[in-house]
Design a protein around this nucleic acid. Structure first.
Length: 304
DNA sequence: AATTGTCCCAACCGCCATTTG
DNA sequence: ACAAATGGCGGTTGGGACAAT
């Protein structure tokens, strides 16, 4: 009855992935494309369960993942989207295509939650009761006040894809011929490795997920603002109703196909737009990275 | 220098909806 | 139609890195 088990429970390895395992997984996905995860452990010989393979790919190895510090713009987006959507990290991640839901969740739990809490406590002590602490927090948030001052440690790789990670990984693996030595390398050490070329790093090209169509934030009319306010009011109930979502765009999205169709990244590359709430206007505004250069955008958050 | 405490994040766990035989 | 596995998601945790004492 039902499906066969994806993998035997016995002999399943847990814990951090080694560079060798990453290479095996990436090589397999390069050849077969992501998906059919239950076949991955058996076909690759990886002693990992299918779920672990999928997680490793989607959270770390998948091309297009941006790593490193969150920019003030991203921070602001997360704050807003969390306020609107709650802890729907996957949904929030659809508006930050280069970030994984896991990263966003971690960032929220380790940074933003504390920040917000701290600010709420501070504002409670303050005498200003005219506006909510949340609004004050947002107004002080770097999203709107310091968006142009993005302190990015590795600013040269704002769109650094995980292909670079894999590249570095492979380089280190090739250098250290000793498997034991390679096994001791954690993912954090990849950046320390020098640069060389590798087969995978050249065949897996960097790609940039197609951004959801957006336009300048300065094109907001008063009607749109009014609509936005009404929308915000009813947003929660709207996003909860999956049936109201328009999923018809699925087929029309551009794919991230690379390598003459050898690698099928459509599934992973497509912006996740299912469960897409009627956010067209909001997302236009939120996703407008150029808005950081537009003066006057600071007026907008007050409507939240 | 050694110890302790805190931070951070990759990976795991458990649940649920969907898929499949 | 049903049972069982898969895929996806959110919550949690283990342990390494770093800071403070």
């Amino acid at each position: 009855m039902g499906r066969p088990p994806c993998c035997d429970k016995v002999g399943i390895k847990k814990g951090p992935w080694t560079p060798e395992e990453d290479i095996i997984l990436v090589s397999y996905i390069q050849e077969h494309g992501p998906g059919n995860w239950r076949a991955v452990p058996t076909n690759t010989g990886l002693l990992r369960c299918s779920k672990s393979c999928r997680l490793r790919w989607t959270n770390y190895l998948r091309p297009g993942i941006k790593r490193g510090n969150f920019t003030p713009h991203e921070e602001g987006m997360i704050i807003h989207l969390q306020a609107l959507l709650g802890n729907k990290w996957a949904a929030i991640a659809t508006y930050l295509p280069q970030r994984t839901d896991n990263d966003i969740k971690n960032y929220w739990n380790t940074h933003l939650k504390k920040k917000l809490k701290k600010f709420q406590m501070e504002s409670q002590m303050s005498s200003d009761h005219n506006s909510s602490s949340y609004h004050q927090f947002l107004s002080k948030s770097t999203y709107f006040g310091e968006r142009s001052v993005e302190k990015n440690e590795n600013n040269s790789s704002i769109y650094a894809s995980s292909a670079e990670n894999i590249s570095r990984l492979l380089e280190g693996w090739m250098r250290s011929s000793s498997p034991l030595q390679a096994n001791t390398n954690t993912n954090r050490d990849f950046g320390k490795l020098s640069t060389e070329t590798s087969n995978i790093s050249t065949s897996i090209q960097c790609y940039r997920p197609q951004q959801i169509e957006h336009q300048g934030a300065n094109g907001i009319s008063s009607d749109e603002l009014e609509c936005m306010m009404l929308f915000d009011h009813n947003f929660t109930s709207m996003v909860c109703d999956k049936s109201s979502c328009d999923c018809s765009q699925k087929g029309s999205e551009g794919s991230g196909l690379i390598d003459q169709g050898k690698v099928h990244f459509e599934h992973e590359c497509k912006p996740k737009i299912d469960n897409n709430p009627p956010l067209s206007f909001l997302e236009k505004w939120l996703l407008d990275e150029n808005a950081s250069q537009v003066e006057g955008v600071m007026e907008l958050p007050s409507i939240f």
